[in-house]
Amino acid sequence: MNHFGLLMQFLRDRHQFIDDIRQGVKLNKKIVSLLISSCLFFALYGAIMGSTGNYLQILSSAIKLPALYLLTMIICLPTLFFFDIINGSKQTFNQYLAILLSAMAIISVMLFGFAPITLFFRLSINDTLFFKLLNVAILGLTGIFGVSFFYQNILAVTQEDFSNSSYRNKVLKGWLILYAFVGSQLGWTLRPFFGGELGENFQFFRAIESNFYVEVLKMIGKLFN
């Protein structure tokens, strides 16, 4: 099984790949390959994020980061699929899954590209707060790229199924906002992704308190103080 070959094929000729998804060409193989390659890249980046803590934190973050993306997908995709089906979409669930996984593959490849930079800052700066904000920025940036890729391609694949395109655009944008909220809240629930300060014990999960946005604002405030 050459999963990375299929991923390279996708990155080189995205239009053809999306066209194949629209026509349902070898969907299962595409889904498996995108899932496997994305998981590995997310796990690698997660391990770098967790490297501020001990080896348990590295392992834990290597599982948690792919979990964050996959669980967000599992939670949100049925909403979009059934909403679209009710409104006249003729695409199958596997086609929706393949398009969302290809967006995730874009995110994972971009994170893999950012990995040496993150590792460099991890090794050269001993400031956990800066490292956390840097990662939030990288995850946010790659997320925006992935989501815009998904938006363009889901529109392209399903455009023939919907007569009222402006309504469809609004629904899709609404779903993307929901996706972002679910993703950030799940990230908050699955935290910590980063190791704590030096000497702090390993934490697998933390108690539910505050929320992601308040914490990011607090971190920015602390950084500038």
């Binding site: 899932l35 998981c39 796990a43 599982i63 948690k64 792919p66 979990a67 669980l71 699955l190």
Partner: peptide, 11 residues
């Protein structure tokens, strides 16, 4: 990846 995926479901 199978082990990671299973851990993701279990998590």
């Amino acid at each position: 990846v199978l082990l990671i995926l299973i851990s993701i479901v279990i998590l």
